[in-house]
Design a protein around this nucleic acid. Structure first.
Ligand SMILES: [Zn+2]
Ligand SMILES: [Zn+2]
Ligand SMILES: [Zn+2]
Ligand SMILES: [Zn+2]
Lengths: 147, 147
DNA sequence: CACCATAATGAGACTGAGACTCATTCTCAC
DNA sequence: GTGAGAATGAGTCTCAGTCTCATTATGGTG
């Protein structure tokens, strides 16, 4: 779960940016806050509709764009032609994903060694790395076991 | 350049898979062979048209899908809502990319340290990693200099 | 070479994620 | 409460990629 700490951080950041409060945006934020991994825009739309609070697609995308712009949400692309959106903890702590080629499950993982290797790239390559994405394809632990 | 070595490997692999030879597919392969980094389907279409050999979009996508299936080409997604396709050297040697947030340029890089860190993940995470993608966002060397 | 089964092609229709428009509604500072 | 500006919603539009199906190319066989 992104937790209430995340929600608070989101509201603070948006307020600091001089943005109005808005109920539709709040709904999107609330859905994301109950989530510890990436959700697609369509899933958010469905959940809101199911909760009796239907929200226009354009509004959902606008809210997500805004959150991404302010570094509060990360856009994750796992290759099925549809972006997913994942709450981003303040402090930069994040995880990456493995897509299981057998069951299709999206598995989150977190590896300091990998992060270190990426941090070192800036020096070695002579570029400035602002952010990075890593996506693995393979067999998840579950499918690994049944293989 | 993917080189003539790549082309030969492609023809061998496709022949070994029992596929017919086909001129349209050959054209797509030829365009890719003159390329050392990722090309979009639209770019391939334009190049073929410009070369006086217009080819149906469906055909280009079919050829690309086939090449991806046989591990001869890699589908690369850099987040502008459009896949790119990159010849893959036999032997598994490959590179990753940085998208410059200023000029939009796609820069290829190659880092053994990063590859090693990813190879080690299998053990640490208890999963089997078949393949991986890494995408960096930041300032390229050119934009870095002018900053 | 002629024939046939099968594989590949091309033109265009279709799909679905996401962007755009604009009239209406909400926020909030005064 | 009022007004300016921000946000919303319904729908339209775009564009990468897929699907369909009638036509054409390929390669093996006699
Ligand atoms: Zn996640
Ligand atoms: Zn990371
Ligand atoms: Zn490349
Ligand atoms: Zn640049």
């Amino acid at each position: 779960m992104a937790s209430s700490r995340w929600i608070e951080h989101v509201y603070e950041t948006l307020a600091a940016a001089g943005l109005n409060r808005s109920s539709a945006r709040d709904r999107v934020i609330e859905v994301l806050s109950g989530q510890d991994c990436a959700l697609s825009a369509a899933e958010i739309e469905h959940r809101l509709r199911a909760a009796g609070r239907p929200t226009a697609r354009a509004t959902i995308y606008r809210a997500l764009d805004l959150l991404v712009e302010h570094g509060l949400v990360e856009r994750v692309i796992v290759g099925e032609g549809q972006a997913r959106f994942e709450p981003l903890e303040p402090g930069g702590h994040h995880h990456h994903h493995l897509v299981c080629v057998q069951c299709g499950r999206l598995v989150a993982f977190d590896d300091p060694g990998l992060e270190r290797a990426i941090d070192d790239l800036s020096d070695r390559l002579g570029v400035t790395v602002d952010s990075h994405e890593v996506l693995l394809h393979g067999a998840c632990d579950r499918c690994e076991a049944t293989a």
